[in-house]
Amino acid sequence: MKRAYDPTHSPGLGAYVALIILFLYAPLAVLTVYSFNGGNLVTVWNGASLRWFEAVIANGDIQDAALNSFIIAGSATVLATLIAIPAALGLERASRRLGVALGSLFALPLLVPEIVTAVTTLVFFASIKLRLGLANLVIAHTVFCIPFAMMPIRARVRGMGETLENAARDLYAPPLAVFRRITLPLLAPAIWSGAILAFVVSLDDFVISALVGDAGTTTLPVYVYGMIRRGITPEVNAASTLMLVFSLILAGLGRSLSRRRSRR
């Protein structure tokens, strides 16, 4: 049967994309399968088992590290989001020049290589002798979470324009009521997307946490990195798989939020 004319059809493209998707997912799948290995050796399959997951969950150090990660990510997300909301509104209302200048400044944490952010923050904290334990890391994480929290909000503010806010003002809403009744509800999905993004990025961080943190502030990636350095064990696989699953849950949450937004 001859194909109907389709301007965008390219032979083999579908197969190529399938290969790329395999490239993206196969390593994650391999890790997941390995983590169900019941044996003591990574490379020798000894039947499927949840034994190493149990070991990870019972590991007090991992529990502490995970708790640290969540405290830091949670605090940094809340702070970054609270800072990003007014900043996104301000950037879109600013004159072109000011908007570009401030926009580039706020993008700095994205542009400067992570390792540089890590060591300069380390140098800065050491110089001013700031030793607040977890709070040091919360500050460092808040900084690089701000641009991520801000991105979706800015896009939404831009897409919204000023008309709806003008309509509310025209209907006798004073500035605070405009913000509370119109701006905030319309931004809410974007605020949530930004917050999830910030949370994921904070949990993801290794370099900054490793350099800026100290013995009492070990985060989950820093702890797991240490495990990997000591040796590849089934427990590392199980811990990694748990982190993988948690990331996927967050990704799903983010997607369902963005879908709800696009239905509006």
Binding site: P86, A87, L89, G90, A140
Partner: peptide, 21 residues
Amino acid sequence: ASPLLLTSPALAVIGVFMLVP
């Protein structure tokens, strides 16, 4: 509210903990 006022918290945090470092 002026753009500068709205962006001032972000400006302060990124200024002090990114630019200064």
